[in-house]
């Protein structure tokens, strides 16, 4: 992570001058991590903002050489995951678990990867929604490993560092998580090969379908 090394150096030199660049570089990423761990946009916004604030406060107490050596990617992910865990615990005290909120991002389309047909935009939005909902059904430890490794894109080593677990554990958890996600998506009532002529027109069952498929 070349840009992160340069940024850590700048933070070590002048924290207040460089911190806005850290915020700009990391806000989307930390928000994504929090959103995919928690499933609630308001909670995710609070957690991501709080993570940046905690990072700043921590760095004000570090000597510059320690700041320069920070591996910003895993370090900030670790702060975010911990805050999300605390937030979820407080929620679980008040609400029964698995109170899934709809997590459709209105108007947001993933960038085209060039392989999908243009008329599959709605399908891809549907995929995102179902996948995001399925992620939230994973056990928290497995979910965190999958989110950091495959949504955020950290390496196995970085994910292990961020979560404070051995690499072998991370590999096993990611493997298990992906297998469960595949099983869940394939078990959806709406899945299965549609008749070819209806492929892009057939009405689909929306969000709640995935919940009915859960154990």
């Amino acid at each position: 992570m070349e840009p992160d090394v340069a940024l850590a150096t700048q933070l070590a030199r002048d924290l207040d001058a460089a911190f806005p660049r850290l915020v700009e570089a990391q806000a989307d990423r930390l928000y994504t991590i929090a959103l995919r761990l928690l499933g609630d946009r308001r909670d995710a916004e609070e957690v991501a903002q709080d993570a940046l604030v905690r990072a700043y406060r921590a760095m004000t107490g570090y000597p510059p050489p320690r700041i320069a050596e920070l591996r910003l990617g895993p370090w900030l992910a670790s702060i975010t995951v911990n805050l999300a865990r605390n937030k979820r615990r407080r929620h679980d005290d008040r609400n029964p678990p698995l109170a899934l909120e709809p997590i459709v991002e209105a108007g947001f389309d993933p960038p085209s990867d060039g392989r999908s047909r243009p008329d599959t935009t709605a399908d891809r939005r549907e995929t995102k929604r179902e996948l995001a909902a399925a992620l939230l059904t994973l056990p928290p430890a497995v979910r965190a490993a999958v989110v950091l490794r495959h949504v955020d894109g950290l390496s196995v080593a970085e994910t292990a560092e961020a979560l404070g677990r051995p690499e072998g554990t991370i590999k096993a958890q990611v493997h298990r998580g992906l297998a469960r996600l595949r099983a869940q998506l394939e078990a959806r009532p709406s899945a299965g090969p549609p008749s070819p002529e209806l492929a892009s027109h057939a009405p689909r069952r929306r969000g709640p379908a995935i919940l009915e498929a859960l154990p």
Binding site: A27, D28, R29, L30, Y31, T32, L35, R36, E45, A48, E105, F108, P110, D113, R115, S116, T120, D123, R124, E126, T127, K128, E130, L131, A132, L135, V146, H150, V151, D152, G153, L178, L181, R182, L185, E186, A191, G192, P193, P194, A199
Partner: peptide
């Protein structure tokens, strides 16, 4: 989306597409 789509577009790519803007 169908099961075949899942095979065409790997799960990892779909997970990557869950990135979003703050």
């Amino acid at each position: 989306m169908t099961t075949t789509d899942l095979i065409d577009r790997p799960l990892e790519a779909d997970l990557r597409a869950l990135r979003t803007s703050a």
